[in-house]
Design a protein around this nucleic acid. Structure first.
Lengths: 136, 136, 136, 136
DNA sequence: GTGGTCTAGACCACG
DNA sequence: GTGGTCTAGACCACT
């Protein structure tokens, strides 16, 4: 059980986010959307590195971040697995980070002269697409 | 009406954004909200740097970015002025950047396990607060 | 203000903890004990690396972990600073981690055939020595 | 009284400790609590490996560690048996290890902002629960 | 100068 | 085979 699945994860060269960030976001999304269920095994560090043609250290760093954030559990010699969901951050910390993300996002978007409705619509679409099977 | 006004701009040491980003965002916001009308003169690089107690290079870089984005026009020997509104980016480019910002934002927010409604509400608030009297 | 102080931090070659862990623990301790007050600047990555004669990447990793945990704020081009205290983790997560640490500690110590009183005494000493000027 | 008893030992997949560590801790605990009396035979490497569905190498390594620490004695051709109590480590070595464990534990716990009383209480509970009928 | 990211290649413990 | 750590050296954005 929990066979390793060829992860549907891609690195976009044009994406301004650093590679390690793209991996973290991608995996988080797969977990949040339920595509990677609790207990599922992730591709090995070396395996994913090869698949994405990036350095293994880069993948390792991303995985390690995800573990620190509580999304993954690492077992030396066995591999990495999707961790059971848990409320990691205090309400205050969640609030702080949400505020930060919103500030940054609006700062980015305001420069584009896009009507507020369209922005909200796009965000709503993207959030809906996650089909939050996991988040509370 | 091109008098140099003491810019209502502040640098927050606690703000996680780099200083140059704070300046760019701040000026863009002042323009978008109409507080800096078309044709208004901006403080000199040295002046603003002194006012904010930051490195002049940082201010220069921020101004240069704002000019490149079409928010400011340089008049040789006179300084920088708020440029008349125009389509500063191609529609495709706007789409690309919007997409990017949304992806990043959702990537950040997904980690927080916040209900989509609350996220949208916060974004809407923040967008509204900018009172885009100028942007279309 | 916030002059960089030659950090009272040492790497013990005999210590079984990896170097990066020793740095993280050491800095956390200095912050928790109040020896590094809020806003204090930390030695630069390269500087500390030289002082400890370890690779800068190792220090960078430790610092990055401390930032992720909310103990430090990093400002590119400026350096790292002790962050204002905040309740980062949910009560449940704190409980989980405390449980884990206790389990591990007792597992280590039970093998030593040391009377429980002595163990508790040593832990109490060590905790008291932190003079919790910062923790709530 | 040297009959092989079906060992009351379990491997928890969720446990963050590596498997070999879980075995070592488990056996030590059984000996310390007297559930495995002096002279008792331990399950064979293959037997325990099968029972726990882990790699025999892992069990062998755990047993070898326990022997090195003086908890088990090997009788050639017969298997492993619980060794009579003795001073397994020099006093200095015990002190060193205790010190190390305390340092690490406090380093972990300091990050959690938990009152010292609660920490001590939890440690005392856990130590008491081991009911050291055997250790001095 | 600062921190952040990436690559390359090595060694270790675990299974 | 697995993940984790460390070193070495490079490039980037920011100040």
């Amino acid at each position: 059980m929990t066979r390793r699945t060829p992860l549907l994860l891609q690195i976009a060269p044009g994406d301004p986010r650093p590679i390690n960030r793209q991996i973290v976001d991608g995996v988080r999304r797969l977990i949040a959307s339920g595509e990677l269920p609790v207990g599922a095994a992730l591709p090995s560090v070396r395996g994913l590195a090869q698949q994405l043609t990036v350095n293994p250290n880069t993948v390792a760093k991303a995985y390690s971040e995800l573990s620190a954030e509580g999304w993954l559990d690492a077992r030396a010699g066995l591999g990495l697995f999707v961790a059971p969901p848990r409320q990691r951050l205090s309400k205050a910390e969640v609030e702080r980070r949400l505020e930060e993300a919103v500030q940054r996002f609006v700062g980015d978007v305001i420069a584009l002269d896009v009507p507020a409705d369209r922005v909200l619509e796009r965000v709503a679409d993207e959030l809906a697409q996650l089909a939050p099977k996991r988040s509370a």
